[in-house]
Design a protein around this nucleic acid. Sequence first.
DNA 1: AGATGGTATTGACCGAAATCAAGGCTGTCG
DNA 2: CGACAGCCTTGATTTCGGTCAATACCATCT
Lengths: 243, 243
Amino acid sequence: MVTVRQDVHSTGIPVLCQSCEARHRGVCGALDPDQLVGLAKTSSKHTIEPGVELIGDAETVDSYSNVLSGVVKLTKSLSDGRQQIVGLQFAPDFLGRPFKVESAINAEAATAVSLCSFPRASVERMMRESPELEHRLLKQTLNELDEARDWMVTLGRKTAAEKVASFLLMIARNIDPTLDPNTNSTSFELPLTRADIADFLGLTIETVSRQLTRLRTDSVIRIDNNRHVTVDSLARLASRSGA
Amino acid sequence: MVTVRQDVHSTGIPVLCQSCEARHRGVCGALDPDQLVGLAKTSSKHTIEPGVELIGDAETVDSYSNVLSGVVKLTKSLSDGRQQIVGLQFAPDFLGRPFKVESAINAEAATAVSLCSFPRASVERMMRESPELEHRLLKQTLNELDEARDWMVTLGRKTAAEKVASFLLMIARNIDPTLDPNTNSTSFELPLTRADIADFLGLTIETVSRQLTRLRTDSVIRIDNNRHVTVDSLARLASRSGA
DNA sequence: AGATGGTATTGACCGAAATCAAGGCTGTCG
DNA sequence: CGACAGCCTTGATTTCGGTCAATACCATCT
């Protein structure tokens, strides 16, 4: 028998499913205790290795998930193999496309990822019963739309140097949402390889590499082990991001 | 006293507000008759000239609108003036960003546009009362997100020639939603200038012009008066769009 | 008609990023 | 250990699209 714990997470978000004692804002926060018991019964926690495909292009999607930790990349491809990353999902984002059985996009773990998944049917039933859940989904979707449009500007109008700087800033802000623009130093692990960054920015790996070395030789950032980035001057990084 | 007519439009969409006897799917279809009377009282129809700004960057938005006819372009700009069109709204799209007072984007009439507008407060009240309305908004938002992500692929990974071909196909499909891929000929008025197309595709006007002349000299399309496009071979256009 | 202004086309040239190619670093496995 | 595979960096060269500049087209107004 599954029981539901109702602790409060340090972020203030209720910890709801026993199967995933972690922040869970995307879905659970909108439900009442009875619904939560039902949801907890059908939910399951997964840990996924980097590179594993979560949702294949043109596959039918039979579950929805909350991202509990790690980064998931959403990609689209042209028939000849050219690829574009169209979104990154960080915890506690919701993963899945309501009202459509077929997915036109690919979801893949960029880092190690832990997920809490629910069967499609449970989520859709609960959406019908609980307007508050749909309201939250609408809010997340509107945020994702804003982000997508911001990246359209980056893709369409920024130079390679500006793209890379914008990317680093975006990652820094997502890893540490409390980051304020006045601090001048921060550091984080890059969740993406050079190839992923290139696919995200519409560039080649060589160009990404060259721009990163340029930021390095100009002492804006340092990079250890290809992954660990230290930003020495957030202001200088921002000034190179094309506003 | 305002009365509400409840005819059915030729598209099957109910015609609801007296002030805008036209298709109106975005908002009104989700409301019950009582709500509609309330909405009709506060709604107002506007006709807007090409080039007029509807929502300014960083302005507060105090109304929501349905696009009844024409095309609205949504743009974002960098501080140095570089501009990117991040979306086009065709009838019967809904215009406005719920849950946010400030708009980060600019909306401008690309063609002559007619709108049916509602005060922010009416729409938000009705959203609270009517889950069905929120449901429709969620669906439209998800569709816009899909479109935005499709364009991210175009912006990031397609060549200039593919971008222009993709653009023409997208316009053709929006102007005539019943267009099936087997017909080989269609024609329409371009709703955007060369400058707008360039801003949409992340190119310059010169490049857009050159690609259009190339399609013309290759007899894929014809153009009259800079605006009226006839596609002679939809299949050949599609084969140049990069899939 | 001629003048004006907005919009589109065309050509010559240039430069940023792609492509091609070589080599370095790190970790794993025989 | 050495060989191998992945990932990243760096350099040389090419190319696609941008920039600059001239011209054309068309509508409107005098």
